[in-house]
């Protein structure tokens, strides 16, 4: 295991080393000590390495991740795993706003709460939040799943496209064009699989499903000629 201590080593060196890691040699496991809320830790990783961040991280932690497995032993600031393509990001504490924003793939797990705009414009990522999520989550979500074991704040799924939302607790309010939908077997299977991958033991049947009513302007074929 290689260790970088951000109280003395530079963040830029750390990220460069992570980008250059040769996984055919013994550089698969990395540890980041004293992150102290620094921004952009472990961004743009592009290989199957494993990174443990021992403490609270700042903005855009593990952004643009591909293939790597990043675990944060603390909280994260704005935009954790934003634009992730693949791999897994696991936050042991809370996540600030815009967790998993615009992410195309991979799995983001938040053990605590995620605040506003969790999964905003998600494009294929799967997100499992063990606690609650804040307002305006999954806004314009296009694809992927957002599974919430706690409660969801205001305007959930506003202007959503085809992302799947599952919430076990209460929903303060649904956003424009977002409605509750029937839980069929395929949805129970989907939730069950994601809970298993996130290490959560809870009954998939306790979740409700939310998604697009497909009534907004862009869903109407009559408007197609406008483009």
């Amino acid at each position: 295991m290689k260790t970088y201590d951000l109280s003395s080593d530079s963040l830029r060196e750390l990220n460069q080393a992570l980008h250059d890691a040769d996984i055919t040699a013994s550089e698969r496991e990395w540890r980041v000590a004293n992150p102290n809320g620094a921004h952009n830790i472990a961004c743009g990783l592009n290989d199957a390495i494993s990174v443990d961040i021992d403490g609270h991280a700042g903005y855009y932690c593990a952004g643009m991740n591909q293939k790597a497995n990043v675990t944060v032993h603390g909280n994260v600031g704005v935009g954790v795993a934003e634009n992730m393509m693949s791999g897994m990001v696991h936050v042991k504490g809370d996540a600030s706003q815009s967790a998993g924003a615009t992410a195309h793939g991979g799995l983001l797990v938040v053990d605590g709460n995620a605040s506003a705009r969790c999964g905003i414009s998600m494009k294929g990522v799967d997100i499992v939040v063990k606690g609650n999520i804040g307002p305006m989550s999954a806004f314009m979500g296009q694809s992927g799943c957002l599974v919430v074991c706690g409660d969801a704040g205001e305007a959930l799924g506003d202007s959503i496209y085809e992302a799947h939302i599952y919430v076990k607790g209460s929903v303060t309010s649904l956003g424009a064009d977002c409605i509750e939908k029937e839980m069929r077997q395929e949805h129970l299977d989907e939730v069950s699989d994601l809970l298993k991958r996130a290490g959560v033991e809870t009954d998939p049947a306790a979740f409700k499903r939310y998604g697009s009513a497909r009534q907004l302007y862009n869903f109407k074929v009559d408007n197609a000629s406008a483009y």
């Binding site: 102290n36 809320g37 403490g55 609270h56 700042g58 600031g77 600030s96 506003a116 804040g134």
Partner: peptide, 22 residues
């Protein structure tokens, strides 16, 4: 505004740290 500003406070690693709600 950011956790970075709190990182040097004594006992911060054991502190309860959270984001105030809107």
């Amino acid at each position: 505004s950011e956790y970075r500003a709190l990182a040097d406070l004594p006992g911060i690693k054991e502190a309860k740290v959270w984001e105030p709600e809107p």
